[in-house]
Amino acid sequence: MQSLFPSLLILVFALWSAPLAAQEKAKTAERYKVFDTYDELDAHLGKYAGQTLVVNFWATYCPPCVKEVPYFNELQEKYQSQNLKVVMVNLDFKSQLKVRLDKFLDDHSLNLEIVVLADQDADAWVPRVVADWDGGLPFTMVLQKGNIKDTHRAEFENFEDLEKFVKPFLGPKPVVVAKRRR
């Protein structure tokens, strides 16, 4: 019995730590997708054609971008039930994701879909987003059925400013059915 104890201890530790390690791995793996080409991003955004889609282009080195990220988080939370999808397209360098984006996500509790666009040929992809966009960040657009409905080429002053921009394109509020009393 005495000789069994250490191995039991190891077993218990292994059982306890393995799922934790797996959880930790899953957490980082799911934090964001990285798209190397604009085509991949385009295809990904196409999946949300059935929703009101808000896309924000940002980077951690852009102070006004960083300031407005929480507004988008609030927007997603508040209007989730009205068929709203927010996708934050991050433009940090792929080689700096660990020191920049990961650190940012460590410091902010966000419930937002974040994707990284690592396509370096800005002159080719920027005009594909909107023909007359000059690539300046932050940049926000709202789409329905894949069509751009509106664009905003500056930061939002506050959450209300962003809300006002998106509201005209939101779906109806879900009808709340009161529970019958028995």
Partner: peptide, 9 residues
């Protein structure tokens, strides 16, 4: 894949 931005094109 249906193009996402036909209007923009």
């Amino acid at each position: 894949m249906k193009g996402l931005f036909p209007l923009v094109t």
